[in-house]
């Protein structure tokens, strides 16, 4: 079994185990009220981290490159209620243009 297939199998089985723990083990039991306040904030915290990493991280380094302009343009588009697809296209187009102009 090659390295690549080991990654595919471990990642696939592990991810399904992570996802299924709640639905299969918890079943239909509702969460305690105190806990809902916490999990409600999990999405914004993780999504913001994904935005920050995706915009500034290059491996383990933090860099400023064309992505900053692309994501900034996306933020403006979101502000003006542009559809998601347009937001994504704007981000890619602005970033690609910035890279061409920067040589």
């Amino acid at each position: 079994m090659s390295d690549v297939w080991n990654v595919v199998i471990v990642s696939g089985v592990g991810t399904l185990a992570l996802k299924a723990t709640g639905p299969v083990l918890l079943g239909g039991k509702p969460l305690p009220d105190r806990f809902t306040g916490v999990v409600g904030l999990l999405a914004p915290a993780l999504l913001a981290a994904l935005v920050a990493i995706g915009t500034f991280a290059s491996g383990q380094r933090l860099v400023l490159d064309g992505r900053v302009l692309g994501v900034g343009a996306a933020a403006v588009a979101i502000r003006f209620r542009a559809p998601v697809l347009l937001v994504v296209i704007i981000a890619a187009a602005v970033t690609a243009t910035a890279r061409v102009l920067a040589g």
Partner: peptide, 11 residues
Amino acid sequence: AAFPALFLALL
């Protein structure tokens, strides 16, 4: 750059 833009749109 499309990835963080998508996550921003979700956020």
